[in-house]
Amino acid sequence: MDSLVVLVLCLSCLLLLSLWRQSSGRGKLPPGPTPLPVIGNILQIGIKDISKSLTNLSKVYGPVFTLYFGLKPIVVLHGYEAVKEALIDLGEEFSGRGIFPLAERANRGFGIVFSNGKKWKEIRRFSLMTLRNFGMGKRSIEDRVQEEARCLVEELRKTKASPCDPTFILGCAPCNVICSIIFHKRFDYKDQQFLNLMEKLNENIKILSSPWIQICNNFSPIIDYFPGTHNKLLKNVAFMKSYILEKVKEHQESMDMNNPQDFIDCFLMKMEKEKHNQPSEFTIESLENTAVDLFGAGTETTSTTLRYALLLLLKHPEVTAKVQEEIERVIGRNRSPCMQDRSHMPYTDAVVHEVQRYIDLLPTSLPHAVTCDIKFRNYLIPKGTTILISLTSVLHDNKEFPNPEMFDPHHFLDEGGNFKKSKYFMPFSAGKRICVGEALAGMELFLFLTSILQNFNLKSLVDPKNLDTTPVVNGFASVPPFYQLCFIPV
């Protein structure tokens, strides 16, 4: 009986604490739906499609509103004006990374994606500088992407125009580009180590996009005490870190300090320079996690976009025909596509942009946080508050993009057929937390897609009208449904 009384008292205290925290903070924060004790607004949000729920709530509470995930307040920004004001106009104040408990377990605050403060700034600055020195957006990395595009075309030829699921092959190409940047090595598509790495990356994007992960991140005790797919994700990350550590040891034994070959060499050189400046942010643990982040951000996002792009091109054969006509006119058949071609191919450029806009790969991006107490639109948001960005509300804005739910390359073309930029184009987020590999991803999408369409016609196994382009999961990332196609050599 005594234990029951204690339990009831504990629960009562928890409920009172929950109510007090919510009521004391709500006077400062933007308005929002009334949260339930302990669980907050979790029942009012469709976990399978958070973005749709945010759109519905914005119609009631406006472009800036507050939700509670458990006891934790989260300020939501919906629509271009609110997102721009926060991420661009007040970029420094909104540059923090929001709480992501599962990532905390995986990387302990290291790396480039989930770190904060001085650690994040130094690692991000170093990573950007190193990638630029190796030619991100310049010639040397373009050579690597072109080489991988040629290998991709050869792998597709091996399908002999038979029906195939493109998931694996389209994942190999961007993964190999990242391998060449980090390890100075590309792998054969049949290499077992490479296959294991690909498998872990593919599993992780599916797990991260599941409703279960949303629950884990908002009720963090689940991570330590409950079984579930989150444990598989943590094991996959541990596998990748151990693999990278092996490569780091190989580099330490063979590195030429006067001739760095890749990202690992550059990081080890930085560690050597910083060894007298303790404590340094440049450690082996930081290198492991930064490399894992580059793999995660640079492989599955690009391969998922490529997979979605081919599905949309199957669905819209008239678009595919126009792209192939432009390829034939500008590039021809006797040389590989290059980035200089893009400025002469406005329709193809528009298609690449429209694919990214339409699929809305990361509907709410990753959570941000404010780095200080900030007054925002007459609300006071306390330091450390998590900020949720609705990228969907920007990419699918119906004023900027008429009929935003329709796939239409003319969203990025003017009346004369010239490519038209849009400030609403934010597939990689915006501001200080914009994806480090934005330029690389854009290069890969253009070169891989043009190389495929230069060499193959795409054949659907069903009537294009019957192809479903609805994402199968739409949590962290929008993942396309399973499909097969035939690559018919031109």
Rank of each mutant, 00 (worst) to 15 (best):
L9G: 14
L195W: 05
S365A: 14
D397R: 03
L361H: 08
D341E: 02
F226H: 02
K118T: 10
F114I: 07
V177P: 00
D191Q: 05
S3L: 15
L77E: 01
G296F: 15
S343T: 08
R124M: 03
Y243S: 04
E250L: 09
D49P: 10
I434K: 11
L67K: 00
T130R: 12
T450V: 09
K160W: 07
K52T: 09
T371K: 06
T283L: 05
Q261T: 07
D165A: 02
M426N: 07
L15K: 03
N455S: 13
N474L: 05
K119G: 13
S451E: 10
H230D: 03
C216K: 06
C13L: 13
D165H: 01
L294M: 12
A321R: 12
D89V: 12
P363R: 03
R150A: 14
I141Q: 04
W212M: 08
H316E: 07
F94Y: 05
C151V: 06
S95D: 06
V113I: 13
Q22E: 14
Q261R: 13
R26V: 12
N457V: 08
G27M: 13
L311R: 00
C486F: 06
F263N: 02
F114R: 12
M406L: 11
P382S: 06
S162G: 11
H353G: 01
V177Q: 01
D468C: 09
H316G: 01
V60K: 15
K249S: 09
L195V: 14
L362R: 09
I99C: 12
P221K: 07
R125C: 12
T130L: 11
G384K: 05
P427R: 13
K59G: 07
I169G: 01
Y424F: 08
G431A: 05
E272T: 10
N455G: 04
T450L: 03
S286Y: 07
I74S: 04
V76Q: 01
P163I: 06
E142S: 04
V145E: 00
D191F: 01
N218D: 10
Y80A: 05
E285H: 05
P31R: 08
I264N: 01
H368K: 07
L366T: 06
Q261L: 14
K118M: 08
L314V: 11
I374S: 10
V248A: 06
D468W: 04
L311H: 02
P402E: 09
L467P: 01
F419C: 09
S12G: 07
D265S: 14
L313M: 12
L294N: 00
G117P: 06
S286H: 14
K399Q: 12
S127R: 04
C151D: 03
F282M: 05
S451G: 12
Y61G: 00
T299A: 15
E92T: 10
S286M: 12
V330K: 11
L458D: 01
D468T: 07
T450A: 11
I205M: 15
L208T: 10
R342W: 04
Y379V: 03
I141M: 12
E415S: 09
L19R: 15
M257L: 14
V479F: 13
K273W: 06
T348A: 07
R124Q: 09
L268F: 06
Q324V: 07
F65V: 02
F476D: 05
M136Y: 15
Q22P: 13
F419W: 03
L57Q: 07
I112Q: 09
K72I: 04
Q324D: 04
I223L: 14
A161R: 06
K118H: 12
A106M: 10
E85Q: 08
K119Q: 09
D2R: 02
I99F: 14
I88S: 08
D89W: 05
R26C: 08
R377T: 02
C164R: 05
I39T: 03
G32C: 04
T386F: 13
M406P: 05
Q484R: 13
H251R: 13
K121D: 08
L131N: 03
T55L: 08
M345Q: 02
K420G: 02
H410T: 15
G40A: 03
N176M: 02
K48T: 15
N217M: 12
S429P: 05
K160N: 13
T371V: 08
I387P: 00
S53V: 10
M406N: 14
W212E: 04
R125P: 05
L208S: 10
G431W: 05
L453Q: 01
L29D: 02
K273P: 05
H251V: 04
P402I: 15
L7F: 08
K160T: 06
N289Y: 08
Q484L: 04
W20S: 02
S422W: 04
P367G: 04
Q146M: 11
S127M: 07
F267Q: 03
E281P: 13
L294V: 05
Y61L: 00
L102R: 09
M269R: 15
I74Y: 15
F482Q: 13
L29M: 12
L14P: 03
V355N: 01
Q454R: 03
N466E: 15
V370G: 04
F65K: 00
L67S: 03
V8K: 00
A238L: 08
K247C: 09
K185T: 08
P166D: 00
K247L: 12
L170H: 02
V8S: 10
S51W: 08
